[in-house]
């Protein structure tokens, strides 16, 4: 059915070390290939300039979910299905489970990876808002060593990341929320499944003595990158649950977002509906019992 059959070259290194060596030797020549669910779409449509791929599937170091007393750490190759199947994720990061469940449909969830979802750097990706709401860090690796970056600083502009050409995304590390926490996730897609987000909002709040002691909101599809809603957060932080200044936060949100018109939705819809979803989240927060 496909009229375009591009030429391509696929390397399958046996280990992470070998993969990093290839990346370093021929700097900028290889495109990492994880589940391929983003790359194959572009390849099929003839829109992928790259023709050389580095299949990461044998890099065991990039797999697995590890739990410590304070964190969960996800290998970059962790699939959405693995996220959905992991008890500890359900317990600590319900928003992440929801993002995984609402991504594509089962086939995509079996193949698509967290690392690919991040490194594809789409502002419409569905796990980044959850990762932002949970104060995630990412670990990057190259032959030069490893380094950790706060995820909220990782995306630097549209499709620009703090990722050098010799580096791979190795792990995604999320601290377990402490104390009493409130979680909210809502994806507004173009339909109920196999849908790209028009708006996505994730939030996590820690409640202490009836006030909002810690609060992060992650947003998708309303800015060039997955973004924190710092202005809206600031309005709510420290406020008692029974008197959240919801309308003030909705106004403040406008400074956090820069939505556009595109083939999926309009800037107006994205602006209004992200304010409404924020309002819905804050009403749920104010009514939550702690």
């Amino acid at each position: 059915m496909r009229s375009y059959l591009p030429d391509f070259d696929l390397q399958v290194p046996d280990s992470l070390g070998e993969a990093l060596a290839l990346l370093t030797q021929e700097l900028g020549q290889y495109r990492p290939f994880a589940g391929g669910t983003d790359l194959m779409v572009l390849l099929n449509a003839g829109l992928l300039p790259a023709a050389r791929f580095l299949d990461l599937s044998r890099c065991q170091e990039l797999r697995g979910i590890q739990e410590t007393s304070t964190h969960l750490s996800f290998g970059a190759l962790t699939t959405f299905t693995e996220v959905r199947d992991c008890k500890a994720v359900h317990q600590h990061f319900p928003n992440l489970v929801k993002s995984a469940r609402l991504t594509g449909a089962l086939a995509i969830q079996n193949r698509g990876t967290l690392g690919g979802n991040i490194a594809n750097a789409s502002p419409a990706a569905d796990t980044p808002p959850s990762l932002l709401a949970y104060g995630t860090e990412v670990e990057l690796i190259s032959l030069r060593g490893t380094r950790r970056v706060a995820y909220e600083a990782f995306h630097q502009g549209y499709k620009k990341m703090d990722l050098a050409p010799d580096e791979l995304l190795q792990r995604i590390i999320i601290p377990k929320p402490l104390g009493r926490t409130f979680h909210f996730y809502r994806k507004v897609g173009t339909r109920q499944a196999q849908a790209i987000s028009k708006i996505c909002l994730a939030a996590c709040a820690r409640i202490e003595n009836g006030t909002v002691a810690e609060f992060r909101i992650g947003l998708g599809s309303v800015a060039p990158v997955p973004a924190r809603a710092r202005n809206a957060e600031a309005v709510i932080l420290g406020k008692p649950l029974e008197a959240l200044p919801i309308e003030e936060a909705q106004l403040a949100l406008l400074a956090d977002i820069s939505p556009i018109d595109d083939i999926r939705s309009s800037a107006h819809y994205r602006r209004v509906v992200s304010q409404k979803v924020l309002g819905q989240m804050l009403r749920e927060l104010s009514q939550s019992s702690f």
């Binding site: 779409v41 173009t190 109920q192 499944a193 196999q194 083939i263």
Partner: peptide
């Protein structure tokens, strides 16, 4: 593309 021309799925 089927991604952006939205026909209903069984979930819809």
């Amino acid at each position: 593309q089927m991604t952006n021309y939205i026909i209903p799925t069984s979930a819809d």
